[in-house]
């Protein structure tokens, strides 16, 4: 089983960090070389939205990957991946606030209230903020492991909201192939967790029973 040394883990983390910045670098390069196409704002909005969903799927894949491979170390890159979800979501939201509404927050909030697809996207982004803020070791300590874990389970709500946002965005064009794909991936990732949880709960009383039976003296 692969189990990296601390040095190797640092290397892996640096590589993932650099790779995760490639989409952002590409956008910046395209912006400076006039390659964002006829409608640059639309390009940036869609691109950052796509990458938010990609990183969301990748982050949600960490736990199942760990269980299936027993690579416990993957959990050590999960925080960084989660923060990249927030990074691309923040870029996506900033594009919306800046170029669609020119920082007119009142106007933006009207849009949020009026249009369900924006409402759910906005809700997903707002819910991501506490997760990003409490991502440090210090915050884990201050909150206590249990509470921290409960808070970070909000991602099980955020993920479907993100998918719904994308789904409704595409609904007008009847173009569901990509939302369906993202939806299936997220459903699989959340479903796996549910499955393992149920399996664990089922096996617990059975184990307890077996143990009791073992200690009971056999009747003669």
């Amino acid at each position: 089983m692969f189990n990296p040394t601390p040095r190797q883990l640092t290397l892996i983390k640096s590589a993932i960090f650099a790779a995760a910045l490639i989409p952002f670098g590409r956008l910046a390069l395209f912006a400076f070389t006039d390659r964002l196409g006829a409608n640059p704002i639309e390009f940036i909005t869609r691109n950052t939205g796509d990458w938010t969903l990609y990183f969301l799927c990748i982050t949600l894949a960490v736990t199942p990957l760990r269980r299936l491979t027993s690579w416990n170390w993957v959990v050590r890159v999960r925080r960084m991946l989660g923060l990249f979800v927030f990074f691309y979501a923040a870029l996506h939201f900033t594009t919306f606030l800046w170029f669609d509404h020119f920082f007119d927050v009142a106007e933006m909030l009207k849009d949020v209230a009026k249009r369900p697809f924006i409402t759910v996207g906005f809700a997903a982004f707002v819910l991501l903020i506490p997760l990003a803020v409490t991502s440090t070791n210090g915050m884990v300590r201050r909150l206590g492991g249990k509470r921290w874990q409960w808070l970070h389970r909000t991602i099980y709500l955020i993920a479907p909201l993100g998918i719904l946002h994308y789904w409704w965005m595409k609904a007008g064009k009847h173009d569901f192939s990509q939302p369906i794909l993202f939806g299936l991936i997220v459903a699989l990732m959340l479903g796996a967790r549910l499955y393992w949880r149920v399996a664990q709960q089922r096996s617990r009383p059975a184990m307890a029973r077996d143990q009791k039976r073992e200690v009971r003296p056999t009747p003669n």
Partner: peptide
Amino acid sequence: DHPRWSQASERRIGEDSFFAK
């Protein structure tokens, strides 16, 4: 309005810069 966005304004392709309202 379109149900998913306002029709009150528009962006002129190639002319309205990034930072123009």
